[in-house]
Computed example of a mutant assay.
Amino acid sequence: MLYKKTALLRAAAPVAVLALALTACGGNKKSSTSTTDNAPKTEKSSSAPEGGGELKPGQGGTGKFKEEDGTITYAVAAQKVKVSTEAETAKLVSDPKRAKGLVAATAWVKYTNKGGGVVKESPDVADESEIYADGRRGGLLIGAAEDGPGCEDTIDIENWKTGQSHTICQTYMIPKGAKSVEVHWTAEGQSGSPLIWKFDNAG
């Protein structure tokens, strides 16, 4: 992942000064609608693919990820995506001028340790989740989602055992008015075949 968000970076980013990475964003979208799309919260894991494939919002897929403590098998399920308004986005970024034409999109993703060991602290599994808008990856907004409702800060996650789940959020900047939003998560060795959850943002 190009913009790897580490625990050190998150700890160093004050709430009012967020590191904004915008190089992957496209700003030429015509629509001006910005909405919130809440996905079903039930995880449907019976037909979940392993390694890569498309899933419904809330449906879980599985994949391996190399943490500092070893390679862990995770069940991953993107629960919902919230696309902020321009006014809400302006309050999140340190320099609103840099965010012109863009809005913040936050994804709630549930991760379950399915085996492979105990993650002692600060898991990195969420670093592989990305948000795409109309087929293009957004720019990571560091420090914006860790304290959101229902979001857990990875700095606070310790001794993550098999069978336990945590919901970790990621926020990306996407073009205002994007009609479709996708959450991608990539398992170890599956860079060309991520798990993909599609959310309708047409309003």
Rank of each mutant, 00 (worst) to 15 (best):
M1N: 08
Y3Q: 11
L9D: 12
R10P: 00
A11E: 15
A11Q: 12
L18G: 08
L20M: 15
L20N: 14
A21C: 13
G27K: 14
G27L: 14
N28K: 06
K29N: 11
K29D: 10
S31E: 01
S34N: 14
T35N: 07
A39F: 00
A39N: 02
K44T: 04
S45W: 01
S46I: 07
S47Y: 06
A48V: 00
E54M: 09
E54R: 15
L55H: 03
P57L: 06
Q59F: 11
G61R: 07
K66Q: 09
K66H: 06
E68R: 15
I72R: 11
Y74T: 08
A77L: 11
A78P: 09
A78Y: 07
A78M: 02
K80D: 04
T85A: 14
T85L: 13
E86Y: 10
A87Q: 13
E88V: 11
E88S: 06
D95C: 07
K97P: 06
K100S: 15
G101I: 12
L102P: 08
V103R: 05
A105I: 09
V109A: 07
N113F: 04
G115T: 07
G115L: 08
G116S: 05
G116W: 14
V118K: 04
V119S: 02
E121G: 04
E121H: 01
E121P: 00
S122L: 00
D124C: 00
D127G: 09
E130W: 13
E130D: 05
A133W: 01
G143P: 06
D147I: 00
P149W: 03
P149K: 10
C151I: 07
E158K: 15
W160H: 02
T162I: 03
S165V: 07
H166D: 02
H166Y: 04
I168E: 04
Q170G: 15
M173F: 12
K176H: 11
K176T: 13
K176Y: 06
K179Q: 15
K179W: 02
E182T: 11
W185R: 07
T186Y: 04
T186M: 04
A187Y: 08
A187C: 06
S191P: 01
I196C: 04
W197V: 05
K198I: 04
K198W: 05
N201I: 02
A202L: 00
G203M: 01
